[in-house]
């Protein structure tokens, strides 16, 4: 039984990480070959950083992801607070459903419908081309929002509802009570939501593809356009870099998770108590 479970785990690991390992190895390959590793070199990384169009797309992607993450986090947190305050159970169910729709909706449908709306509204105001950075930003906020809400809402629900009351009791206005007491409590949710929104925006291809225009190109779209011709190992180098950036963000997000923070905190205190004794 034990060996079987070990083999199974090994297989899962293999299928999860082997592709990434191969990508990583071949990004350092000197030649173009996909079968022979001729020599270790940073050639393709150099090539990559010489490609100004790709670098421009990277910059666009980052600007878009940062804007979308910040705005959707602010809006999502506000929405979560609003939903949390709803008294009627019916209204809450409605809001939950509305929140979930963009998540369960296939990306392609969200993408097409957003594009249609942007073009329609643009025509209405007589614009020739209506797809640009702004439309993409709106689209990204749209699909990031539910994830932020889903991260923040449980933190609000876990919070002792007497906490904001206690803050008001001790002299805070409702707004100050929110900032001084509720925000620190739900911060882990806000941070996780922010990181999730950032990675989602970074990662998105389908919705971006439909809502981009006017020469504004993100990295996934750039890669897609490049693969229409031939895939150069330059792309492996790019993918490797992206993988490690995402890995770093994932670790960060897990570390800010409340449970982990709590576990670390108690462990530290136990240690302190032990030292005292």
């Amino acid at each position: 039984m034990k060996t079987a479970s070990k083999i199974y785990t090994g297989l899962v690991m293999l299928f999860l990480f082997a592709p990434i390992a191969i990508l990583l190895v071949f990004s350092f390959n000197d030649s173009k070959s996909l079968s022979v590793f001729s020599e270790f070199s940073l050639h393709w990384y150099r090539e990559l950083f010489r490609d100004s169009e790709t670098l421009g797309a990277v910059r666009n992607t980052l600007v878009l992801a940062v804007c979308a993450a910040l705005l959707s986090t602010a809006m999502g947190t506000a929405a979560a607070v609003g939903i949390h305050k709803l008294k009627s159970r019916y209204m809450r169910a409605v809001m939950d459903t509305v929140t979930n729709i963009p998540m369960i909706n296939p990306d392609i449908i969200t993408g097409i419908s957003l594009m249609l709306m942007f073009v329609f509204v643009g025509r209405l105001f007589g614009a020739a081309t209506s797809l640009n950075f702004a439309t993409m930003l709106i689209a990204h906020i749209t699909f990031c929002l539910p994830y932020v809400i889903l991260q923040v809402l449980p933190k609000l629900q876990q919070m002792d509802k007497a906490l904001p009351e206690a803050a008001m009791d001790l002299g805070c206005t409702p707004m100050r009570a929110f900032l001084k007491v509720e925000v620190p409590e739900i911060m882990p949710g806000i941070v996780t939501g922010l990181i999730m929104a950032f990675t989602l925006s970074l990662d998105d291809f389908v919705i971006s593809y439909f809502t981009s225009g006017n020469g504004f190109q993100t990295l996934p779209i750039r890669i897609y356009n490049m693969t229409k011709k031939t895939v150069t190992p330059k792309m492996y180098a790019l993918a490797t870099i992206i993988f490690f950036v995402i890995l770093f963000l994932l670790l960060l997000s897990n570390l800010t998770d409340a449970d982990t923070v709590q576990a670390v905190r108690t462990a530290r205190e136990k240690k302190k108590a032990k030292n005292k004794a």
Binding site: E165, A166, V181
Partner: peptide
């Protein structure tokens, strides 16, 4: 007026 809450409500 100040309140001591049932579950303390400490920050």
């Amino acid at each position: 007026v100040n309140t001591v809450f049932q579950r303390y409500a400490l920050f």
